[in-house]
Amino acid sequence: MFTENDKRCSLTELVGFIHDGDILAIGGGLSSREPMAALRALVRQGIKNLTLVGSAHGIDVDMLCGANVVAVSNESYVGFEQDFGMAPNYRRACESGQVQVLDSCCYTLVQQLRATISGIPFMPMRSIQGTSMMQLHPEYQIMKCPYSGEELILVPALQPDVTLIHAQYADQHGNLHIDGPLVADILFAKASKKVLVTVEKIVSHKELQNHGITLPFIYVTKLSEVSYGAHPTSCYPFYAYDRKHTAEYYRSATNAETFLTDYLLPYVFNCNQHSEYLDAVGGKQTMNLLAQWKAGKQQWQSLYE
């Protein structure tokens, strides 16, 4: 458990707690609250051979695959939904064998994390039986229930080395307030060896209590204040999803060469600081536009048109 009074550190220091070969759980989901600034820093800092675990993801996992820092994918879904479609870098990495494909599914992941949280080596469940997931995961076992005689599936405890979360608010001790859908963040945090957090704003403990504490400090290892740290995914109420930037990302990801020249270089490798990235994506003007969702239905809707 993490009792340090002041857990604040720089983004570079924060990401320094992630090591080559780690099992990494990324918080958020799809186009919402992905810790993108930390992931860009991770790529710049040359951390490699990660095993990714998660439920439903998009640009976060796709970017890491495109930067060739992933060895294994244990994700349940990686794509851009009906917005843009399949995840191009992820697909290429899986199909070339660069990334080992060990797809999971949401409830299986939940049960595996719960096993770790409860200090038990496995959890039983009914689903998955009869599907190809059983062949993909020879570690899953079938057990006859000693009480009912039914056949159940056992899935082993899963402990991420690191969970990376982007939250709206924290205090310096590491208590977090997360606004809106939590996805698997709390389960990840409680099951992980380390929890690294970027937040929009670090506030006093009193102010955080007013927002409400979603995750107690005991799970949180280190945190860093990174405003707009989820961009181009959303972090409401501060900013909506940047669909325009995501479209640019998607175009660049058509092949590995253009992804390097048109995306990784201008937005990741050539931006040593997060502030340089924010300038590259349009600075204040872009950020003010993404905050416009609050102005009304028309303004909100216009962000997607």
Binding site: S55, A56, E75, S76, Y77, V78, G79, M86, A87, D103, C105, C106, Y107, T108, M125, S127, I128, T131, M133
Partner: peptide, 8 residues
């Protein structure tokens, strides 16, 4: 892309 929680 994978099935999310569809399998379960």
């Amino acid at each position: 892309p994978g099935g999310g929680g569809g399998c379960n």
